[in-house]
């Protein structure tokens, strides 16, 4: 996967809690057998009306958010179905970083396997970012090396990410190749346990 070290981008605020993966990518788009091309379907039922026309009342469709690469959302982001099509769709649409107060476990893992950086900030920090991005076009920088999010107006927040996931993301490693360096131990385990 593509490494991610430091990313500067336009923030898109989606001020809702408990956004489930059925909203991120509805089931009718899960039938494809490749990893590519899901971006066009991201938040499909919110972005498009029943005739397939773009909805003006959904903020992601507004001109000021075009070219966004940092999604900021409410708590428990990515809950529900384990579908990895959700991070694939977000990434293909252009998101490299997600910022939220909390995530569902499976979605959080799925992001880190695909070079998307899921950042956890406090409710207050997230609300500040959302307010700034709703008011105007708003850019922040996310630096994984020092685990900080900042803008050029004085906002700065630290975040945590375990060292293992951080290393994987910074280096874009193939996790299977890393695991296979432990091949001897896997075989040993199998011999001992049948």
């Amino acid at each position: 996967m593509e490494p991610i070290r430091k990313h500067e981008g336009l923030v898109y605020p989606l001020n809702r809690a408990n956004i489930d993966t059925d909203q991120i990518i509805p089931k009718q788009f899960l039938k494809r057998i490749s990893r590519q091309g899901f971006g066009q379907f991201v938040f499909y039922n919110w972005r498009f009306d029943s005739k397939g026309e773009l909805r003006n009342d959904f903020s992601l469709n507004q001109p000021k958010y075009q070219g966004t690469s940092i999604l900021v959302a409410g708590e428990n982001f990515g809950c529900g179905s384990s579908r990895e099509h959700a991070p694939w769709a977000l990434q293909d649409y252009g998101f490299r970083v997600i910022i939220a107060p909390s995530y569902a476990d499976i979605f959080y893992n799925n992001c880190t396997k695909n070079g998307i950086l899921p950042v956890k900030l406090t409710e207050e920090e997230v609300q500040t970012l959302i307010n700034n991005a709703e008011a105007d076009q708003y850019h922040v920088t996310v630096d994984l090396e020092v685990k900080k999010v900042y803008d050029n107006q004085g906002f700065e927040a630290s975040f945590d990410l375990d060292d293992y996931k951080r290393e994987m993301l910074l280096n874009g490693w193939d996790e299977i190749a890393v695991t296979l360096t432990h091949e001897g131990k896997i075989s040993q385990f199998e011999q001992a346990n049948g």
Partner: peptide, 14 residues
């Protein structure tokens, strides 16, 4: 698990 993890388990059983 997600699909990347499915691939990981298929390949390594871990």
């Amino acid at each position: 698990i997600g699909t990347s993890e499915v691939e990981h388990v298929l390949a390594t059983q871990t």
